[in-house]
């Protein structure tokens, strides 16, 4: 009995030391900040401010969030001039690439000081989340010229869109308080949770951010489903005197012969584009540029060496194409 107790004590001490070692390893391998609710409503939640992060899963990146908890190279203080506000999902958030390779950073590089782009892209924020938060985001940041909203799906559920319109669409929840919040501060436990309990954490594909639309109870015209969403975008932007730009991108697939293709429904894409045009919303589809770039250079816009080729989030190459397309659209509008 005494021997068993001695061994259990040794095991406890060893377990604590092992946890410290594993956390030290995770500081560099997978160290994600804790997120908490965003009182401004510009996003559902924000990450901890001025927090070092690292990622060795689905890309490699090291960086530090800014004073607001967003992934920007500079801090933001109320009243700072912003020309372009960027809203989007984890792709736009850019935690999977070096901070100076994210879309917002590349847009700033391409405009060479002429315009300043501020990134509030946040993981788990679909088009619906972003439209829901748009008014609050424009109130808070007051962008002077453009707001870019990333869109990663052409499929929308009527009920979900109606919830956005009525203001009942739920926020992404944060659990930063209590024991759960405390446990999240141990990087190894965070990794363990991501590995075994968080649905889809390792199921690569940024498209996962957009929940699949359930089968509709009543067949509706696509325009009937999407129009209220785009009306909200147009109205909010008109009220804030800012030009909306919706940018569509999605993961692409490889055929056996090596050609790249998109599974996007082209009819829906055309209808969405038409509906945007009718409301004065600039619509940019980056997929043709992704495919063209691949055909020229064999480089995929998604995926990293630690994911399946072409799977996972947008890589630095994808961000650069995305940013170039946005800049080209802005220049064309200004020409």
């Amino acid at each position: 009995m005494k021997k068993t107790l001695q061994w259990l004590l040794k095991a406890f001490v060893a377990g604590c030391i092992a946890l410290v070692l594993l956390c030290a390893f995770c500081m560099l391998y997978y160290n994600v900040p804790v997120h908490h609710n965003n009182p401004s409503g510009a996003t559902d939640y924000v990450w901890e401010s001025h927090k070092f992060y690292s990622r060795g899963i689905d890309g490699f990146a090291l960086g530090r969030t800014n004073n607001e908890g967003h992934n920007n190279l500079s801090d933001y203080h109320e009243g700072d001039a912003i020309d372009i506000l960027l809203m989007g999902s984890s792709n736009m958030e850019g935690f999977n690439v070096a901070q100076d390779k994210s879309t917002a950073a590349v847009i700033n590089q391409l405009f060479e000081g002429e315009k300043f782009c501020y990134n509030i892209g946040t993981a788990g924020h679909t088009m619906l989340n972003n439209v829901k938060n748009l008014n609050d985001a424009l109130d808070k940041y007051q962008p002077e010229e453009y707001v870019i909203i990333e869109c990663i799906s052409m499929d929308y559920d009527y009920e979900a869109v109606q919830a956005v319109v009525k203001g009942t669409f739920p926020d992404n929840a944060s659990h930063s308080g209590g024991i759960i919040g405390l446990l999240q501060r141990l990087p190894y436990l965070r990794l363990f949770y991501t590995q075994f309990f968080k649905d889809g954490a390792l199921a690569f594909g940024a498209g996962k951010d957009e929940p699949a639309a359930p089968a509709p109870a009543v067949e509706r015209e696509y325009s009937e489903i999407v129009s209220p969403l785009l009306d909200m975008v147009a109205e909010s932007c008109e009220n804030h005197a800012v030009q909306p730009i919706i940018v569509y991108n999605n993961t692409l697939m490889l055929r056996e012969d090596g050609s790249l293709y998109s599974s996007t429904d082209t009819d829906k894409l055309a209808a969405f584009s038409q509906l945007c045009e009718e409301r004065g919303i600039c619509f940019v589809n980056v997929i043709p540029s992704f495919i063209e770039s691949y055909e020229q250079s064999h480089k995929l816009p998604y995926g990293f060496s630690n994911t399946s080729p072409g799977g996972g989030h947008m890589n630095a190459h994808g961000h650069s194409i995305f940013a170039a397309e946005v800049c080209a659209a802005i220049r064309e509008m200004e020409a």
Partner: peptide, 22 residues
Amino acid sequence: STVKGLVIFFTFVGLTLGLAYT
């Protein structure tokens, strides 16, 4: 039966679970 051995073993198991493809 030693703390050193247990630390190595627990760390190894922890790494295995942390790096596993799930």
